[in-house]
Amino acid sequence: MQYSVFELSKHLGVVPDTIERWVRQGKLPVSRTGKNYQFRISELKKWAATHNICLNLSDEDPAEKKRESIISLSSAVKNGGIYFDIIGDDVTSVLRACIKKMSIIHDDFKKDLFDRLVEREQALSTGIGNGIAIPHPREQLSYLNDPAVSIFFLADPVDYNALDHQPVSVLFFILCPALKMHLQLLSALSFCLRDAQFKRFLNARPDPHQLIEKIEILQTANPI
């Protein structure tokens, strides 16, 4: 297998000019066909090894690799599901009832998730005001494959120790396998919740399909 100047420049992380100069100066093993240079991989590997130079032979661009996949809030909501009429009269009972309904979490891990959420609530309430709380664990959840946002509408508002001391009636659970996604989802969610129209829409206890549609509209208006 052979590389051209341009391909090799990607693998070595230099510009084609440098490759051409090295060839001119006789520092790279090269075979010429007419005006074009070709580099054999076997020779290149040997060259890189003797020179202690990193030859990145994978096809991906290392700069591209770092760019993590962007997840959308709407798909996370689809993952997490929307539930209505949760019954409970304080924070822990509400949380327990919610977790119990959650289909995305396997029963073996429900206890662990509950402990983590309660611990988080004890540290600082996640009630952000206007009757909304965003419970989430502090660490990433290893037993989750995809990020999920579950929405729970309570049967009756509950005192959640919220920042504005108002009772909470809607809960957004943010559950993520990685912390990076958590930030993205949180930022997307808080953008939605800042929208006055959306808040009114929430209070009307909408149909799940409509809710997801609404979220999609809002997130296209504010791409991450």
Binding site: V14, T18, K27, T50, H51, N52, I53
Partner: peptide
């Protein structure tokens, strides 16, 4: 720095 190091290696190698 990145390119300087590589250039140094390439230039001084016994080859």
């Amino acid at each position: 720095l990145d390119l300087y190091r590589r250039e140094l290696i390439v230039q001084t190698s016994a080859h």
